[in-house]
């Protein structure tokens, strides 16, 4: 552990962990910048990124404004181009990479090997981050991406335990960024096609999981039902709050039991692990939620800024403030949070 920290300082990495905030639109970007993000990430208004939702993302003009707003305040900007193009879409994705290189962004976040190869050869000055959609969970995979495309950083899937993160960082040739808060993907990102199994569209191909265009809400005698691609995901009783039918978060029957067989509607929250993540040498904490409102971004980033500052000041005596936890709980999916793969039952 000590070695990796010394190594980072020697290489000139900032010693303070970055707070990487979601920006689904310009107001969210401003909210993130104004509340203490060190970097923001966003995408074009099309299927080239993994939050391809109606009304979300940036037109070229808004993108230029956003970049200027962030850079003036010393905040970095990362552009997500993290879906997997097929031959039919290759030229559109390729031109998105070219556009990204012309913009003054600090990094492009990408998953597909063909795209990384194109970007590295055509735009050698473009700083590349491996997207979480690249499914890299071990340092040999990170070495592959570093050796072939010169990636500088990797965002790792939400399936690693703390000791696995420590081990990964120790042997990684690149910086490691982890998810800190937001909707929890329980599957290895980039290798989950549950969404396209039910709808024909997945994060890899279309940039969206459980797309809204395939969602139905039906009031029935058995209660309110939510369906995805016609498949019953959830049935709500009278006193239950209905949530969005993300495929893996419904109640299903296995044997004689009906329960959240894959995952509950819940958000990841690693606030209590900050000192350990810092000690492990993680360089950045990513907040999920480009599809959420500017108010959400402001609230969440504010809490995380305060927590990161407290952790930097005195990591040994750090513990998450109750007010922070309750603030985050309120904006969480199903108003509950989990440590996900960092928690014991997963190991």
């Amino acid at each position: 552990m000590q070695t990796s920290r010394v190594c980072q300082i020697r290489l000139g990495y900032p010693d303070m962990m970055e707070l990487v905030a979601p920006a689904g639109n310009l107001p969210s970007l401003k909210a993130a910048v104004d509340n203490g993000a060190t970097a923001v990430y966003f995408g074009f208004r099309d299927a080239t990124n993994a939050r391809h939702f109606a009304g979300l993302n940036f037109s070229p003009a808004k993108m230029a404004q956003g970049i200027e707003y962030a850079h003036r305040r010393g905040v970095k900007v990362f552009l997500a181009l993290n879906t997997y193009p097929q031959p039919e879409g290759w030229e559109r994705w390729q031109s998105a990479v070219d556009r990204a290189a012309e913009l003054n962004v600090d990094a492009m976040i990408t998953a597909d090997i063909g795209m990384l190869d194109y970007a590295a050869r055509r735009h050698p000055d473009l700083n590349l981050h491996l997207s979480v959609q690249g499914s890299a969970t071990n340092y040999e995979a990170l070495r592959f991406y570093q050796e072939h495309f010169g990636i500088r950083r990797a965002v790792v899937p939400r399936v690693l335990s703390l000791s696995q993160v420590e081990h990964l960082v120790e042997h990684s040739p690149v910086e490691v960024e982890v998810f800190g808060f937001g909707s929890l993907c329980v599957m290895v990102e980039g290798r989950c096609i549950l969404s396209s199994y039910a709808t024909g569209q997945s994060p890899n191909t279309f940039g969206a999981c459980s797309p809204a265009s395939h969602v139905e809400w039906r009031e029935t005698s058995a209660g309110l039902e939510t369906r995805l691609g016609g498949v019953l995901i959830e049935r709500y009783g009278k006193d239950e709050n209905a949530g969005y039918p993300t495929l893996c978060k419904g109640r299903f029957q296995v044997g004689d039991h009906t329960f959240h067989a894959i995952e509950e509607p819940t958000s990841l929250n690693t606030l209590e692990l900050l000192p350990q993540l810092k000690q492990a040498g993680v360089v950045a904490i990513k907040i999920e939620g480009r599809q959420r409102s500017p108010v959400y971004v402001a609230q969440v980033i504010k809490v995380w800024r305060a927590a990161l500052d407290a952790c930097e000041r005195d990591p040994e005596n750090y513990s998450p403030d109750e007010a922070w936890m309750s603030e985050l709980g309120k904006v969480s999916e199903g108003t509950q949070t989990t440590l996900g793969a960092y928690s014991r039952p997963w190991q």
Binding site: P87, W90, G114, D117, N204
Partner: peptide, 12 residues
Amino acid sequence: SVNIYNSGTLRV
């Protein structure tokens, strides 16, 4: 699971 979705990836 290696995700070869296009000709560029196939070539690399």
